[in-house]
């Protein structure tokens, strides 16, 4: 198929950006979206133009490194990561607009690459269970109710890609944070730090410049791992619990 690609190009954080249009011919439906960009880049290099910078690593949909806004959809029109999106979802003659994740808390680096280290700092603020190596009790000493274990797992599937922020009209990271709060808060091991954790994480989230949540559900719709919206409910509930405990 032949495609028209409108791609955001920006040389660096301070440089002005612009949309650039490329024509790409003979795209196979078997290509992944990123392989399609690889092919475009090879042709750009051959022509002496600098290739388009974009992030990707595992290309199996699990590392969370890739992420593009494809014609207004985070990770494209189907529920998956950009690397697992295949060109058979598109048609001959389509015009596709490719933009980076846009959020104040995801500063631009170059072209389609942004800095998501704010996610790391949210985890640093409290997204962990304090268990020093060697201090762990025997694994079977604390059974976990299956329902809770399953819910913790469902939330733990988050890959930290940032699609929730990209899709949210408020650029809020509540789904990302709610997933971690739910994952750790459902488990007995996570109880001692439960209320301190949610306060610290939300405070860091706000400090990073993410927007607040308006429960639109755009995040859960965009999530490639189908993290449900109710993790945000759990986050809200735990924060209310923290208030009740004087935090």
């Amino acid at each position: 198929m032949n495609l028209t690609l409108n791609i955001w190009r920006q040389d660096g954080p301070e440089a002005p950006g612009r949309m650039v249009t490329y024509q790409l011919a003979d795209v196979s439906g078997d290509m992944s979206f990123l392989e399609m960009l690889d092919v475009l880049n090879e042709s750009l290099i051959t022509k002496g133009e600098e290739p388009i910078a974009f992030d990707s690593d595992c290309r199996e949909g699990i590392c969370g490194m890739c992420g593009l806004m494809i014609s207004g959809n985070a990770h494209g029109p189907v529920t998956t990561t950009t690397c697992q999106l295949h060109m058979r979802e598109f048609h001959d003659g389509d015009s596709i607009t490719i933009e980076p994740w846009r959020a104040d808390a995801f500063p631009m680096i170059k072209d389609l690459v942004v800095d998501r280290s704010s996610f790391d700092r949210i985890i640093q603020a409290g997204g962990f269970i304090s268990a020093n190596t060697g201090s762990a009790p025997e694994a079977h000493s604390v059974p976990v109710e299956k329902r809770k274990a399953d819910r913790a797992f469902e939330a733990a599937a988050c890959i930290g890609c940032g699609a929730c922020v990209a899709a949210c009209p408020n650029a809020s990271a509540m789904l990302f944070m709610g997933a971690k709060v739910t994952h750790l808060g459902e488990l007995p091991q996570g109880q001692p730090e439960r209320y301190a954790r949610v306060v610290k994480m939300v405070a860091q989230h706000d400090h990073e410049g993410f927007g607040g949540c308006t429960n639109t559900g755009a995040c859960a719709d965009a999530c490639p791992k189908e993290i449900p919206l109710d993790v945000i409910n759990t986050l809200n509930r735990d924060l209310r619990g923290a208030l009740g405990r004087g935090r």
Binding site: S135, A139, P143, E145, A149, A152, F153, H183
Partner: peptide, 22 residues
């Protein structure tokens, strides 16, 4: 064996049986 203990303490959500054990 220590690895499993350590990971469970960190909150790694291993698959569990209905009884709550790994």
């Amino acid at each position: 064996a220590n690895i499993i203990d350590q990971c469970v303490a960190q909150g790694v959500p291993f698959a569990r049986e209905y009884g709550g054990l790994l």
